[in-house]
Simulated assay, not measured.
Amino acid sequence: MTDQTERVAVVCPACSQHTETVHEVLSPGGQATLRCTECDHVHKKQLPEEQTMTKDVVVSQDGESFSASTEAPIDETIAVGEEFLLETDEAILTVRITSLELAEGRTDEAVVEDVKTIWTRAVGNVSVNVTAHPKSGEHDKTRSFTLQLPGDYEFTVDETEELSEEEFTVEGILLRDDATGYEHEKLDFEGDMAIAKDIKRLYVRDESTTAWSAW
């Protein structure tokens, strides 16, 4: 699930024959080409093969779920909030872990070997729900719509957006439960920013001229 190892700890025949030092992997394979970060000596060494396991993955996407599987290092620790690339028959998806199912229940962090099912949410492209009120401020005349966006699209409080034939100014951002790196669950101060895959709902002021006609 993680990228190929770029650094390994092995002994260096030039500067440290008895104590392991950090090496960069220049060329992986049976006989890997390594460079010692202590003395820059380049040499080849047989690296142990990483043991992996096939794990079931459930993906939630736009209100629907489907099953897939992934290969993961047996001794890797994974946790809720982490993202990885998942290859399915239809596409390669970026997914975020939302829960880890073990034999005895669910948890937020576990070693791959102990995990029965990895529950995830697709975050490469996401749906963002929007609640909009008219410029007049009449909150009892709100309307809702949904935006389809790349997961990394940024929204900032007090900034105006033009998306999918909608024009609006962001006033508040309600975050998802699995969003990390934010101080609050709801952002409503000028300059507060969140990316689409972290957003549960946007609260906006409608800036369009026709959206609030009687018909």
Rank of each mutant, 00 (worst) to 15 (best):
L102M: 02
L174D: 13
S16Q: 06
I195K: 07
T180M: 11
A110D: 01
E190C: 08
E90F: 10
V112R: 00
T210I: 05
A14W: 15
R121V: 14
I92N: 06
T131N: 12
R96T: 02
S60T: 10
S27T: 15
E167D: 13
T117V: 12
A9I: 05
S213H: 12
L47G: 00
G137D: 00
R205D: 07
R7G: 06
D89M: 05
L202P: 01
A211Q: 09
V95Y: 01
E113D: 09
D188N: 13
I74E: 13
E49W: 12
T107V: 11
D75W: 08
E71V: 04
V22T: 14
L174V: 12
A110P: 04
E113I: 03
V112S: 00
N129L: 11
G137H: 02
S65P: 11
S16E: 06
W119L: 15
Y153C: 06
D178Y: 13
E109K: 15
Q17G: 15
E104W: 04
V8F: 03
E38R: 15
Q51K: 14
S144A: 13
V59I: 07
K45L: 15
V157M: 01
T19G: 03
I74C: 10
T70S: 05
D56C: 13
V11I: 10
A32C: 03
T180W: 06
D206R: 04
D40P: 12
T131E: 07
T54F: 14
E83I: 11
T5C: 03
Q61C: 10
K135R: 12
V130E: 02
T19L: 08
G63Y: 06
W212N: 04
V8S: 03
S69M: 06
L149M: 13
S60H: 14
T120D: 08
T120W: 08
E109R: 09
L174I: 09
K44S: 13
K55W: 06
E83L: 05
C15A: 03
R106C: 11
I195F: 07
K141I: 07
R7K: 12
M53H: 10
E183F: 09
G172W: 04
S127Y: 12
E104K: 07
L26Q: 02
V112P: 02
V80R: 12
G181T: 00
T88K: 00
A122Q: 15
L102V: 07
I195W: 08
C15G: 03
E162A: 09
P73Y: 03
T37N: 06
M193C: 12
Q4F: 14
H139F: 12
E20F: 10
G63T: 02
A179R: 06
L163W: 01
T37I: 11
R176S: 07
S136N: 14
D206P: 11
L47M: 01
E165P: 04
T19M: 07
E50M: 11
S208E: 10
R176C: 07
E50S: 11
T37E: 08
E38T: 14
V128E: 05
D178A: 05
C36K: 04
T156S: 03
K116Q: 14
E20A: 14
D206V: 00
E87Q: 15
T107M: 00
S164N: 10
E101F: 01
T54W: 14
E20M: 09
D75V: 11
S16V: 05
